[in-house]
Write a protein that binds this DNA or RNA. Structure first.
Length: 408
RNA sequence: GCGGGUGUCGUCAAGUGGUUAAGACCUCGGAUUGUGGUUCCGAUAUUCGUGGGUUCGAAUCCCAUCUCCCGCCCCA
């Protein structure tokens, strides 16, 4: 027996209505805000992710599906920002009038141990906005994320924001942090020792209790909570907060929020749910002002977010499947085929019996799958009318085809 | 990569060494040969994730292996 691969799954017919809702709402809400859909390939040159996502990240280091073909190293995309930026550059989109607004949806691939809210093939929906440095862009992007989540009926969500500063002030902060942590270096967990060397910002993300205790020490808190970011960055962050206040979007400033991808600067944000288990983020995003340039394009500021659709799905209210408008009950398959076609041509959802079941069995099936039984038996065919039975009220009437169209 | 749990019909399950592996739902058929959703009857696992082993005898014990789930790491 060949089975689905570990960390992958089928999206079954009974799950599709919520997936359609996610996709339709994305199209509507993002289009209304001037975002256009972009579909990029599912695999790209490995180098794109190494340079784009950052080679100190776990995603690039140990989670990529990479393969060789004709001496090229290719990788199944682990996220889509790098691909969108590649397309942005390659198609000369920097020459379009700013802002350039794009959105996408589709499968992503990461080689990780699956668990609740985490698969190896999963789907993301996200937006990216290019060309605007001002905090209005940050505010719009966060607002869009919140509106989208609300449109899916998700309410118990928390928005967390933080500012990482620019490369200059962040460097200063990293050094300060390393300095004040130096005396405790030996007490840190193995991962933190690593982070201390490679990516000190990620220290703030550690979930090991002993490390957390160290970080709570007053002299360290003073550095973490201190306003390390430069005046310009600070102003940008204040602007963003005032915009969010004006939009009536509730948020918490979380100084410990550091996103795991290397390309972020200034604004980073996450939207979390308490109903998801330990993988509680449904949305993550931030500003990446240097990525376009780093990948060889014109220097272009940008900001975006991505959401995990499987996580959204698990939070959405499950719904009953839609019933067909009509089910044809007849012993004459030719008439059934003809009538089904005519009704479907008129945009009605119709099915009928293919197996020559007895009348009672056909009615039983009709009651299960449809709102109306369309009865086309010998009597009806002989006398030229159609019997229509409302399966909720049990009312039955004789109709013509035109009347049928009006009722269904 | 590390830790914990799990695996019996399409689904949910009972069963913890002894003759034919409960039950429920779904599906299919009949009661009801042109009127359903209620009711009643019936059918559907030579087999218990897979491969070995112990035993007169294994779904039940042992070993290996795989799956899925949950947690760590990381992320959406």
């Amino acid at each position: 027996m060949i089975k689905v691969q570990k960390g992958t799954k089928d999206i079954l017919p009974q799950e599709m209505s919520l997936w359609h809702k996610m996709e339709e709402n994305a199209l509507r809400i993002f289009s209304n805000a001037g975002y256009q859909e972009l579909r990029t390939p599912i695999f790209e040159a490995t180098e794109l992710f190494a340079r784009g996502v950052g080679d100190t990240t776990d995603i690039v280091n140990k989670e990529m599906y990479t393969f060789e073909k004709s001496e090229r190293s290719l990788t199944l995309r682990p996220e889509n920002t790098a691909g969108v930026v590649r397309s942005f550059i390659e198609n000369g989109m920097h020459r379009l009038s700013a802002p350039i607004k794009l959105w996408y949806k589709g499968p992503m691939f990461r080689y990780e141990r699956p668990q609740a809210g985490r698969q190896r093939q999963f789907h993301q929906v996200g937006v990216e906005m290019f060309g605007i440095k001002d905090a209005t862009a940050d505010a719009e992007v966060i607002e869009l994320a919140v509106s989208y989540l609300k449109s899916l009926g998700l309410n118990d969500l928390e928005v967390e924001i933080n500012s990482l500063g620019c490369p200059a002030c962040r460097e200063e902060f990293k050094n300060k942090l390393k300095e004040v942590l130096k005396p405790y270096y030996n007490e840190l967990c193995e991962d933190c020792k690593n982070r201390y060397e490679k990516n000190p910002l990620r220290l703030l993300d550690c979930k090991v209790e002993d490390c957390k205790k160290i970080f709570e020490k007053p002299e360290i808190q003073a550095v973490i909570q201190g306003e390390f970011i430069c005046e310009e960055c600070s102003e940008h962050f204040e602007q963003l907060k005032s915009y969010l206040d004006a939009l009536n979007i509730k948020y918490n400033v979380n100084k410990l929020l550091v996103r795991g991808l290397d390309y972020y600067n200034r604004t980073v944000f996450e939207i979390k749910s308490n109903n998801l288990g330990s993988q509680n983020a449904v949305c993550g995003g931030g500003r990446y002002d240097s990525l376009v340039k780093n990948l060889g394009g014109e220097d272009t500021p940008a900001i975006g977010f991505a959401m995990g659709m499987e996580r959204l799905y698990s939070l959405m209210q499950k719904t009953e499947p839609e019933k067909l408008s009509g089910y044809i009950v007849s012993s004459d398959k030719t008439e059934s085929l003809k009538l089904a076609k005519r009704l479907r041509d008129n945009n009605k959802s119709i099915d009928f019996d293919f197996t020559g079941k007895k009348f009672a069995k056909q009615m039983e099936k009709a009651a299960k799958v449809a709102k109306y039984a369309i009865i086309l038996g010998e009597d009806e065919i002989k006398s030229g009318y159609i019997s229509l039975k409302n399966l909720e009220t049990s009312e039955q009437t004789k109709t013509t085809f035109e009347e049928l169209l009006n009722i269904l």
